[in-house]
């Protein structure tokens, strides 16, 4: 095989490093990009550069943001005393989309997993305690971690550390996804939903 464009080859190589993208998809994307006008290519390139250079982390909640503190932490309308603890910043994005939660967030940056050498000190747990003990007037900490072994262990650990503080600690409910039929729900989820059923 003879390569006629080193530049095309270089683009394909970089694109194929993207998650879920094999060499074939990378080829298709590179050829698609080649067919676009210059303006589009420049916009895309700049977006990538800005993503790396301009996005930072909020020093209060740990969320990704263009400013520090982030817009959510700065927003005085969201000063309702509630802090929702999540594993990663994409969880903030998911919860924000619901438009249900009007408090603030705290991003841990992971969950406790000794096998992966992640202990409480590798996570932003101390920062959470500082916030709860500080002047933010936090009244409720809502734990919204994944319901797997690591998420459970982390929730348990945080709850224990928060015991001496005057703050309510809650966790999001386990249950049945909306719009599904009981028939299609796995037994483990269903039995969990039964144990954590609530009064009508």
């Amino acid at each position: 095989m003879q390569i006629t464009s080193e530049y095309l080859e270089r683009a394909i190589e970089q694109l194929s490093k993207l998650p879920g993208t094999g060499r074939k998809s990378a080829q298709r994307i590179a050829i698609h990009l080649l067919k676009q006008n210059d303006e589009y290519a420049l916009k895309l390139a700049n977006a990538i550069v800005d993503l790396k250079n301009k996005v930072t982390r909020c020093s209060v909640c740990g969320n990704v943001s263009d400013s520090d503190p982030c817009k959510i932490c700065e927003n005085q309308k969201r000063e309702n005393g509630q802090v929702c603890v999540v594993e990663e910043f994409n969880d903030v994005y998911i919860i924000e989309k619901t438009n249900e939660f009007r408090g603030r967030y705290h991003v841990l940056g992971g969950v406790i997993s000794p096998m992966d050498n992640i202990g409480p000190d590798q996570l932003r747990i101390k920062d959470l305690l500082t916030r709860v003990g500080g002047d933010e007037q936090i009244t409720e900490v809502i734990l919204a971690l994944n319901p797997d072994a690591e998420g459970e262990a982390t929730s348990y650990y945080i709850n224990k550390l928060l015991l001496p503080y005057e703050v309510k600690v809650t966790r999001i409910a386990y249950g049945i996804p909306m719009g599904t039929e009981l028939e299609f729900i796995d037994e483990a989820t269903l039995s969990r939903a039964f144990t954590s059923r609530s009064a009508f």
Binding site: I112, P114, G119, P120, A149, E152, A153, T154, Y156, Y157, K160
Partner: peptide, 9 residues
């Protein structure tokens, strides 16, 4: 301190 959350599960 570290064991407790796992012991519980």
């Amino acid at each position: 301190m570290y064991l407790e959350p796992w012991d519980n599960q």
